[in-house]
Amino acid sequence: MKNTPDPHAGYAARDRAWHPPALHPPYKTSVMRSPSAPLLSLPTSLGEETGPVFGQAMLGDMDHDLVHNYAEPGESAIGPRIIVHGRVTDETGRPVSNALLEVWQANAGGRYRHKKEGYLAPLDPNFGGCGRVLTDEQGFYEFRTIQPGAYPWPNGGNDWRPAHIHFSIFGAAFAQRLITQMYFEGDPLIPLCPIIGAIPQKEAVQSLIAELDMTRTVPMDARAWRFDIVLRGKRQTLFENRLEGL
């Protein structure tokens, strides 16, 4: 007996109670940018079950090294040097290989290199703030960067974003397209953040918090943080007596 994917089953529906709802009034911008009608439920079809595929050939050698990819030759970005790594799987536990991850973040002082940025912390001339990497055959990825700083933002009178790295993730299907943010274990700003607060369940918040990983830390060089990512999976048909083996 084999657990064979049913080609007509499509992707399992998103658990909307797990994701943040569109409307979360403490995050003020969501008030006018959230649809008021319910989403229309549809099973996935070819156009949602396929998606663009990217290759190593389109990436530059420095794309996964934010410490250096914007820096002058011989220089590097200022800040605590870190490695971020983890594994991308789908909801059924299968590794997602060749997944493109695009990341962006503020510099060590909490300042973004962006036209709309208004925080008075200084720009780092050697830090651009973007990087990207593909997962390997087993779904693993790794990139180097500097630890971003927390920053204030105009929402409530005194709201600060915990340190975070934004992730854009492509799986194999357009239905799996996801943008999220990774936080750092132990950050006291996490429970205060209205954007994180939009996530209803504690366990869901916990899954966005990277753990310090001393086993991958490089002595005298960089600390390591582990952040695993789960993308939507396909519905499957299987025999119940095989469930345990999964």
Partner: peptide, 20 residues
């Protein structure tokens, strides 16, 4: 249906999405 793991929760792309 057997999603055995939970999908990573979404978060807003934020105002600086263009950087990435």
């Amino acid at each position: 249906r057997y999603p055995i793991l939970k999908e990573t929760p979404s978060q807003t792309a934020g105002p600086y999405v263009h950087i990435g």
